[in-house]
Each structure stands twice: as structure tokens, then as C-alpha cells.
Nucleic acid binder design. Structure first.
Lengths: 151, 151
DNA sequence: AGCATATCCTATCGATCAAGTAGGATTCAA
DNA sequence: TTGAATCCTACTTGATCGATAGGATATGCT
């Protein structure tokens, strides 16, 4: 589950927009607030706009705002807008995989993995991510002591 | 959660080894059984050997076999051996991330996502993947009707 | 009208990595 | 000694990632 720089930046931007909602915020302000390269932030905001996750206003006093209310936009949507699908196996969707021999059962495993990822990113809204009041499921996942240790 | 070609190939190879355990199988046979490029399969088997997941035997009648019994090797170990850590955010481990402002809570989200991925790949053994008798948790994840539909 | 401040569009760039190939050296059993 | 196998080093090719450059276009204010 690699989250790219684009993905990370996009979520940080989106969460900042959520916190300021419904004010519009300029790309420069967003970039400054999260310490990101301004031009790169513009590119990412373009992606979010084309995915209809944010609206933009041009000109002086212009900027970006969430197209929907922060409780209504999931982190998963933001990630999909800038990187593609949440889960892929060798560039294919999990349910499109198919194997012979000992590997025949792997598609079920890939689908399960995707479902697990969705159960986090699609169940957390930008509002929750901004306030830190996550769903119970998330608290349970992070509660296990080894959740915070690398493997 | 992008599984690379290396990752996919590695799991297919590992599952094939699991099915034949404890016989040793040559790289050519493995490649043929799963329709993979032979040379590339060799590279991957080298990774698995260096991670002590498989043992190798040189010479005629040589080949590869699992270093431990198939019930004792998880899919997660195989994936880590060929791609790196199961979850990374902009090239960093989830618990190493840190943000200012509206994004302060994101590390918990990344850790939760990693925990979710682990709960699939680290809880499924090669034996289970080969037989298709997955843990209950996996069946539950794949049971939801929308688990098999793209988003 | 003119200016400052924005978004927005197109193009480019360097570095890195992924996937796969090539060729041969080495090992081992029969 | 021969054949089949692992193993090692190197290379190629293409794509992608992260980022930057420069300017065209829109908007509000004075």
C-alpha cells in the first residue's frame, strides 16, 4: 500500500480545506500551511478539481474550497483522484486477476486486501481526519501495540 | 496498495512451492507452471532465498523448496521479501510521518491502513492460499457483494 | 483603464525504478 | 565428462514520479 507524494500531499491539502470550510483558500496559502512546493500543489488541486472534489475561484480573492461538506468526502476519494484505484495487482484490478494451478485462489486474497484498505480510507471523512475523531474501527486498528512498530 | 509484478510473481511461485512441499522444484518448472519469464523467476527466487524463505539446491535434480512448512510462511513475508514494507507513505513508514496544522492526525490514519493490510497478508499462510481455505476474516471481507466491484 | 492576484494550461526535465534480458561462471549428480 | 541446474554481473528499455518554467486567462479593486 504505497501512498505516493501526490497522494500524501492531496490528503494534507484536502484536510486543510476541510478545516477552513467553506472559505476559499489559495494554492499559495495551502502550500505554505503544509510546507509543499506551490507549483506542485497547483497540479494536485487541478486533479482534485477535475474529480469534482473541489471548486475553484479565479482572480483576486480566489482559491479553492471543497465541493461537498467535509463530512461527505472520504479520504479514499481524494486518494483515487490523484493516484488511481486504491488497490491494483500488477496494474490490474483485483477481480480481473486469474491464475492457473496452485495460484487459482489468489484473486480472493487480492479482493480481501482491497476490501481491507477500503474499510479504512473509504470510511474516514475529511472532517474526521481533520478533527482526529476517527470511527471506532480505526481506533481499534491503531490500538494494538504492534500497530506502531515496523516489520 | 499496489502489488508489483515482482510481488505477484513471488506469491504465485511461493504458492506453487507450497503445493509441492517438500519436493524441490526447478526455476524452469516454476516458471512454466505459472507462465512467467524464466529469467525473471530466477531473480525473484534469489530474493526469496536471500530472505531465507526458500532453500536452494544446485546441480542436476536441484531447485528450490520452502525453508519452512507452508503453514508457517505468510503471504506478507513473501511480499516483503521482494517489494519492501507492506505500507509506505511517500517512501516513509507510517509511524515516521509527522505533520503540522490540519494534518496532525494523519499518522494514525496511515498506521490504521497498514494494520488493515497486515490483517490480510500476515494472517494468510501459503498453505491456506494454496488450498483456498482462508481464515474466516478473509471470507467475511470477500463476502460483501461490493467487494468484487471496482470503484 | 490598469493593476495585482489568482487559477489554469502546456511543456519540459532529471532521476529513479520496474520489468525483463543476456551471457556466462559455478555447482553437482550420474 | 556431461548435462542440468543455480547463481552472478551487467545491461536495456520504457515508464513514472516529483517537480519546475513560463505564460495565458480570469477576476476584483481603485
Amino acid at each position: 500500500m504505497q501512498v505516493s507524494a501526490r497522494g500524501e500531499y492531496a490528503v494534507r491539502i484536502a484536510v486543510t480545506l476541510a478545516q477552513g470550510h467553506p472559505r476559499t483558500i489559495s494554492a499559495s496559502s495551502l502550500a505554505a500551511a503544509q510546507a509543499l512546493p506551490r507549483k506542485f500543489a497547483e497540479v494536485i488541486l487541478g486533479d482534485l478539481r477535475r474529480a469534482h472534489l473541489v471548486d475553484s475561484v479565479r482572480g483576486v480573492e480566489g482559491g479553492y474550497r471543497l465541493a461537498r461538506s467535509p463530512e461527505d468526502v472520504s479520504v479514499g476519494e481524494v486518494l483515487r483522484a490523484v493516484d488511481g484505484p486504491l488497490a491494483e495487482v500488477r496494474g490490474r484490478r483485483p477481480e480481473e486477476t486469474s491464475y492457473e494451478g496452485a495460484a487459482v485462489n489468489l484473486p480472493r486474497l487480492w479482493v480481501a486486501a482491497r476490501a481491507a484498505v477500503r474499510s479504512v480510507f473509504d470510511e474516514v471523512s475529511l472532517a474526521q481526519a481533520a478533527t482526529g475523531e476517527f470511527p471506532l474501527r480505526i481506533d481499534e486498528l491503531t490500538a494494538a501495540d504492534d500497530a506502531w512498530t515496523p516489520r
